[in-house]
């Protein structure tokens, strides 16, 4: 009887995270990694909705448990501190994504539009709605204050050209989680040659974001 119940809960968990069963500690580690990656990368990273949802679930569950505990309980205050710390990471993560969406909204929407079916979406549904609304509002605002008073041939605006693109050539600091071989480093100046480097596990590097962008999404390196 009890065994069957246990099995059930495990299956449910698997459904939630869509991969192997993660312990809450691993989940928090994942969130922290996503937070730092998002903080340091010049462009928007893939959304981590499952991680965010799982963490939210953990937090609400814990908070509802804490509601029932009377004030002044030592254990409860420790739990509360932990909840506050996790919530801080979560909000900081979501906020840094929103900041990037505000900064690069036409490009974010463009990438979302040109995305092939089956490819994971860059934005969560909520973020997509936010980006769309931000786009419409900005456009409406520009029209209302300036564009409609312009000569007719100047009344349209191409947002893609008006808003700067994320600079993928920025340098980033990173730590290697899985060994990578033959990473091509492009030369800085014309009189230098390109060369390859191997990224050893655990080593730290400074290089262009463009070179290692795919390695971030598959989790082989993390930004620091």
């Amino acid at each position: 009887m009890s065994e069957a119940a246990f099995d059930d809960s495990e299956i449910n968990q698997e459904d939630d995270s869509q991969e192997d069963v993660m312990t809450p500690a691993e989940l928090i580690a994942k969130l922290e990694e996503a937070w730092l990656n998002e903080k340091f990368s010049p462009e928007l990273q893939e959304n981590k909705s499952e991680v965010v949802e799982c963490v939210m679930e953990q937090l609400t569950h814990m908070e509802s448990n804490l509601q029932r505990v009377k004030k002044g309980d030592t254990k409860a205050s420790i739990h509360r501190m932990e909840v506050d710390r996790i919530r801080f990471v979560l909000t900081s993560y979501l906020r840094s994504r929103l900041q990037k969406i505000e900064k690069f909204f036409p490009h974010v929407l463009e990438r979302e539009k040109s995305r092939a079916d089956g490819e994971p979406s860059l934005l969560s549904p909520e973020e997509f709605a936010f980006a769309k609304e931000y786009y419409d509002n900005t456009e409406a605002y520009l029209k209302a204050v300036a564009l409609k008073r312009m000569p007719p041939n100047l009344q349209s605006i191409d947002m893609l050209k008006a808003v700067p693109e994320p600079c993928l050539d920025s340098f980033v600091f990173l730590r290697v989680k899985e060994k990578q071989e033959n990473i091509l480093i492009e030369p800085e100046t014309d009189d230098q040659r390109e060369y390859v480097v191997d990224l050893e596990e655990g080593s730290q590097h400074l290089m262009r974001y463009r070179t290692i962008a795919p390695l971030i999404s598959n989790g082989a390196v993390k930004l620091i």
Partner: peptide, 30 residues
């Protein structure tokens, strides 16, 4: 004008002290 540097043994706080300044200057130069 290097394009890659290995930074083993540097801690996060140390990287953080030069991050803004170094990355901004590299971007400007680029």
């Amino acid at each position: 004008q290097e394009a890659h540097a290995k930074l083993d043994n540097l801690t996060l706080l140390e990287i953080n002290t030069i991050r803004e300044f170094l990355l901004n200057s590299l971007n400007c130069m680029f």
